[in-house]
Amino acid sequence: MKKRKLKYLLAGGIVVAALAGMIYSGVQESMVYFYTPSELVQKKDAVQGKSLRVGGMVVERSIRWDPQTLLLTFQLTDGQGTVFVRHKGTAPDLFKEGAGAVVEGTWTSEGFFRSSNIMAKHSEEYKPPAHPETLESKKELFKSILKEGKP
């Protein structure tokens, strides 16, 4: 029975440790998962060099991409403040001007945000693309299947 008890304690320990870890990282990270550009602009001296996230909308016509050096630059805004971001490498497909994005990295002394990771943030709205022809044909197909599906 001793072996059983050891297994029990070990399993319980792992679960408790995992929970504690998640709650700790949760309190650390999730509460302020990202800063807004205006918050960052306000406290940029205090957070310089610390790794953090900034989230906002990608400013229209601000994306510059150099395929030679893989340097991607753009601006993030929340309507009040704007942050200039430099990123080495590619971005997700949904990353585009006018869309939401969260970037991970550090605020540099040179006055820009050095991103190590770009995440695209999308809305909770889902709708078909606005192609009237295909949409109508899909709707017709939809209706026909519904009719046949009913016993």
Binding site: L19, M22, G26, S30, M31, P92, I118, M119, A120, H122
Partner: peptide, 21 residues
């Protein structure tokens, strides 16, 4: 394929992982 990451520790994902645990 949408966000660009498999996982991130935001509140929704963290609380779902906690629920599972």
């Amino acid at each position: 394929p949408t966000w660009g990451v498999w996982w991130t520790w935001d509140a929704r994902l963290t609380l779902t992982a906690i629920l599972f645990t």
